[in-house]
Amino acid sequence: MTGQKYILAFVITAAIFGTAFYVASRFDARRVADIRATQEAISIDILSTETQFELLGRLDCSTITESAVLSEELNDLASRLSVAENNLGSDDPQVILLKKQYSLLEIKDYLLMQQISDKCSKFKPVSILYFYSNEGDCDDCGRSGEVLTYLRQQYPGLRVYSFDYHLDLSALQTLVALRKLKGELPAFVIGNRAPIYGFKNLEEMQTIIPELKTLATTTAAQ
């Protein structure tokens, strides 16, 4: 009888562990679904802006407004993606797929903003391309990410596009080649300038990007 009890207790304990594992994985699945839905919504937004831009052709700059909302959506997506990456691991196939989609959305948004700013002189977005890695070959990436997150919170108009340098995505590799990145990390491309490498603290970052002064700050910044 006692022997049976030892086994029964083991079975129930294992079942509870199994349930905990299952519930946790359901939550992760919900997260992935949530990110996927957001990405779809963003991709429709981008497509819509692109179409609008093409329809207007020679364009009327007054109708184009900087879509700060979209930038916020992308930012929010970035933080959600990093939660999913922490939970599921950066080598999880779903995570890799989501990151690829996210990177593509970022590149498209980046290109669209460039096109718009070329044609409309009143429109001067401030953008940073940020290249990082979490494969252990970039000790300063965590801290650099923190500085950028803070800047993004302070200047909602600042467009930060962050890319996993090692992501196997041809469009991203083209961007890397175009911007003549050397492979040193972290790397920042501010506007159309040459890449900057290595960790920069908040103060240094603000000196490197004098355009920040032209952007509105959040009330929290005061």
């Binding site: 500085v147 803070y150 960790f199 603290n201 908040l202």
Partner: peptide, 8 residues
């Protein structure tokens, strides 16, 4: 991090 990044 706080010390090196300057982020409050």
């Amino acid at each position: 991090d706080y010390w090196s990044t300057g982020v409050p």
